[in-house]
Simulated assay, not measured.
Amino acid sequence: MRFDVTDLRLFVSVAEAASITHGAAAANMALGAASARIRGMEEVAGVALLDRERLGVPLTPAGRALLQHSRIVLQQLGRMRSELDEFAHGLRGQVRLFSNTNALVEFLPAALSEYLMKNPGVNVDLQEHLSDHIVRSVAEGVADIGIVAGSVDVASLETFPFREDRLVAVVPRDHALAGRRRISFSLMLDYDFIGLSDGAALQDFLAGHAMRVGRRLRLRVQLRSFDGVCRMVESRTGVAVVPASAAKRLRRIMAIKIIPLEDAWALRRLTICVRSMGDLPAHAARLVEHLRQA
C-alpha cells in the first residue's frame, strides 16, 4: 500500500472540511484531480474512506483510522524538517499549543513571552479550546502541547503539573449575594450573568454545567476579557464566574466581591500534556520544560 505526501495532505484537508470541494481548495488542488486522488487511495486501500452524502463526505471507520495515521506522518515529516533546520539555518520551528481559557489568559502570556525572547526562531500557534478537545487533539497529533483542566482523562498522554487555580463568583460589593462566604453555581443561575464572548472555552464550560442542572445562563453581556467582565460586574449589570487569579488581581482596582464556589469542579488543576516527550522536536520539548519551570 503506497500513499504519497500529497495524498495524505489532501485527505486530511478533505476530512477536516468534510467536503472534497473545500478540501481540494485548501490543498490548492483542482476538484477533478482531488476526486481522482481520493478514488485512487480507496482503490489502493481496498475500502471506502468517505461516505458520499448530499451534504458532505463524513469519514468511514477506515477513513478515521487513515486520518489519524496521516496526521502523525505529516507531523513527523514537519518535525524532521524542523530538526534539520536547526543545523542548517539556526532554529526555525513552530509549536502548536492548545490551552483552556484560564491558562491562556492568566498564566501563558508571561511564560510564553520569556520563551519566545530566548527562542527567536520559533513561532507558537496558540489556540483556545475546551479541555476534552485539547486531549483529543494532542492524542491525534493535531496539537504538540496541551494545557488542560485536571478533570479530563489524560491517561493516554504524558503529563506534567502546570498551575492550580479556582473558579470563583464575582459580584458587586453591595449585591444581595455579597455577604455569603461560599456559594453554589446553581444559586448564581438565578441572576443575570456577565460572560466571555462566544467560543471562549470557559464560557462553554460554564454553559455545560448550567445545562447539567437543567438551567441556562441568563447572559446580559459578553466580553472578550476577564477585565471587561469584572468591570461590568462592578457596574451592577450582573454576576460572573472567573478564575481566582484574575479576580484577585482585579479586586485591587474594582469594587467587586469574590465568593468561593463550593462546586467540586471549581478547583482547576492545570496540566501540561503531550503524546510523548521523546517524540517532540527539540524546540517543542524546550517549551514544555520552560512551562514546567516558569
Rank of each mutant, 00 (worst) to 15 (best):
F3P: 08
T6D: 13
T6E: 04
L10V: 10
V12L: 04
E16F: 06
S19E: 10
I20P: 08
I20F: 07
N28Y: 11
N28K: 12
G40P: 00
G40A: 04
G46C: 05
V47C: 02
L50I: 01
R52I: 01
E53I: 09
T60C: 06
P61W: 12
P61Q: 04
L67W: 02
Q75K: 14
Q76P: 08
M80T: 09
R81L: 14
G93K: 07
N100W: 13
N100Y: 10
A103W: 07
A103I: 10
F107I: 02
P109L: 10
L112F: 08
E114D: 08
Y115N: 03
Y115W: 06
V124Q: 02
L126A: 09
E128P: 03
S131I: 11
D132Y: 15
H133S: 14
V135M: 00
A139P: 01
G146Y: 08
L157H: 01
F160H: 13
R166T: 10
P172N: 05
R173K: 15
D174P: 07
R181A: 12
L189S: 01
D192F: 14
G195W: 01
S197N: 11
A201R: 09
V213Y: 00
R216Y: 13
L219V: 14
L223A: 14
L223F: 06
V229A: 05
E234M: 05
S245C: 00
A255N: 15
I256K: 05
I256N: 01
L261K: 10
A264N: 04
A266C: 09
C273Q: 03
R275F: 14
S276Q: 12
H283F: 13
H283S: 13
A284P: 05
L291N: 07
L291H: 05
